[in-house]
Design a protein around this nucleic acid. Sequence first.
DNA 1: TTTATTCATAACCGCAGAGTTATAGGTAAG
DNA 2: CTTACCTATAACTCTGCGGTTATGAATAAA
Lengths: 107, 107
Amino acid sequence: MSPAPDMLFRTLADPTRRAIFERLCREGEQTVGALTVRSGVSQPAVSKHLGALKQAGLVRDRHEGRQTHYSAQPGALNPLIDWTSQMSSFWQRRLDALDDLLKRMDQ
Amino acid sequence: MSPAPDMLFRTLADPTRRAIFERLCREGEQTVGALTVRSGVSQPAVSKHLGALKQAGLVRDRHEGRQTHYSAQPGALNPLIDWTSQMSSFWQRRLDALDDLLKRMDQ
DNA sequence: TTTATTCATAACCGCAGAGTTATAGGTAAG
DNA sequence: CTTACCTATAACTCTGCGGTTATGAATAAA
């Protein structure tokens, strides 16, 4: 029920938006114009995606003159990592319990 | 561009569907009826969500008489883990490069 | 000052998808 | 055989959102 993973999943669900985030991770800081070029969509669309990414805490913006530079925000993926490892631990724990049970039945 | 993370993100983006998956991870195998009870939505809605989860490889179904048991499929989250760690490694690598540069400028 | 550039916002459109009710298929119970 | 139960599918509605074009605001260039 924690809101953090929800926001991240919804934000990263869109392929275009995730592609933008990936580019920022791979290539570092980019201006809106640079991001727009190979995005396959219009500049306003890119701006909206960047707004969503920013609201999810996935990117940071830095204004310099008349252009805005965006960069990926590292730690933002942590809730996602936490969630996945938690899910993994759940079924792992249940496997352990099953293993335990079988071992005790063995004796 | 790999299709695996895309499917997982889209499937897990919906809160209701993710809640169902979480329950299966926490509590293990469940029938459709049991999952419907505290889901807040109708039984057909739950069935559709389970269908989506199954298509994404996140759950497995087991037919027993007139009821169907669903269980979480452990390894299915691996592409997600890979993707996040890859993104993390990207900006980590760039931070290392920056660190290197600063160190060399220092001398 | 005027013009050009860069980005964000507004207003609108179309569609994917999450929800519903109704119902069919298959299995257990009477 | 008939009835009741469990799940899946069909058909439909409606909202959210990703896309567009048009335009505004701010800054650089001429």
